[in-house]
Design a protein around this nucleic acid. Structure first.
Length: 328
DNA sequence: CAATTCCTCCGTCAAGGTGC
DNA sequence: GCACCTTGACGGAGGAATTG
């Protein structure tokens, strides 16, 4: 039973191709090198197969058209020069253990310095057309509407008496979030449409609810005051000027500059904390989604490399046969 | 069939990175 | 320097698989 090991030394963060400057040693017995294979990545043009130079133990060199393409894309971060050892030996040498410790430390350092999954995949996708790109504001992955990721930075955030948060962004988006509900599902997005309504200072807000028929209107004068206009199955909110008398049961969170009492300060702190937790909740979801995508990409890359490895081994077996028939 | 283990998902915290 | 983002780590919840 033979075992194949592929080790790669990585010492940098730059994205590079696997096919550049590879050196592969083929051994059939411990300590006995049958052939050394060098792949010169730049000797072949793009799209044409690389020429593989096989150095035989007798010193004879053979040029072969290899299966490794000169510019293979790699998800795994690779150094400028990559050393790959392909061994068909059942037992590895004893230095592997001590090397494993330093390798793990190096790997840990590399991991700690690794940029985000989005950066890695987006850098990769800019080089390789086949690699999917992680959108900056992807919202439909896995069927979960992630409205908060598409949300512009809110300029005002209000809390109603029912505990719901209403964020008004400069881009005209209103976010209604229920912190007691399950994350994204509690988020509802409203889009302001300044349709030139004759009402002075008012903006019609279309309520993007689950039902397409459930369109409701909101009036937004210059000063943004959100009023819970009605209660029931479908919550409704109204945004009025501060001079308008507020209905009962509406809790307004004033801007920090107007806070005076310790109770107001405490409420403000609680509100900020809830908002931070809500954002981090969504960020963690998004991060996990990106990580999944990243791992999938790595797995597919591993599959490709395994196929290439298999082909390379077959190719070298063929070369060995050619060599043995020549020497006979 | 109840108890236990394993796996996956999620929320939260904390630390480091980033942009202004 | 500060606010915000990103992500590893941790622990809990819940469901599936396993075991006695």
């Amino acid at each position: 039973m033979t075992m194949e090991t592929v080790e790669s030394q990585q010492d940098g963060n730059t994205m590079d191709s696997v096919g550049e400057n590879e050196s592969i040693q083929i051994q059939t017995q411990p300590g006995q090198t049958v052939a050394q294979v060098s792949v010169a990545g730049n000797t072949a043009g793009v799209g044409s197969p690389a020429m593989t130079v096989v150095q035989l133990p007798s010193g004879q060199t053979v040029q072969v058209q290899g299966v490794i393409q000169p510019t293979q894309p790699s998800v795994i971060q690779s150094p400028q020069i990559q050393t790959v050892q392909v061994a068909t030996i059942a037992d590895t040498d004893e230095s592997g253990e001590s090397e494993g410790v330093t390798d793990s430390q190096k790997r840990r350092e590399i991991l700690s310095r690794r940029p985000s999954y989005r950066k890695i995949l987006n850098e990769l996708s800019s080089d390789v057309p086949g690699v999917p790109k992680i959108d900056e504001e992807k919202s439909e992955e896995e069927g979960t509407p992630s409205a908060i990721t598409t949300m512009a930075m809110p300029t005002s955030i209000y809390q109603t008496s029912t505990g719901q948060y209403i964020a008004i962004a400069q881009g005209g988006t209103i976010q209604i979030a229920n912190p007691t509900s399950d994350g994204v599902q509690g988020l509802q997005t409203l889009t302001m449409t300044n349709s030139g309504t004759p009402q002075p200072g008012a903006t019609i807000v279309q309520y993007a609810a689950q039902s397409p028929d459930g369109t409701q209107q909101f009036f937004v004068p210059g000063s943004q005051v959100v009023v819970q206009a009605a209660t029931g199955d479908m919550p409704a909110y109204q945004i009025r000027t501060p001079t308008t008398a507020l209905p009962q049961g509406v809790v307004m969170a004033a801007s920090p500059g107007t806070l005076h009492s310790p109770q107001q300060l405490a409420e403000e702190a609680t509100r900020k904390r809830e908002l931070r937790l809500m954002k981090n909740r969504e960020a963690a979801k998004e991060c996990r989604r990106r990580k999944k995508e990243y791992v999938k990409c790595l797995e597919s890359r591993v599959a490709v490399l395994e196929v290439q490895n298999k082909k390379l081994i077959e190719e070298l077996e063929t070369l060995k046969d050619i060599y043995s028939t020549k020497t006979d």
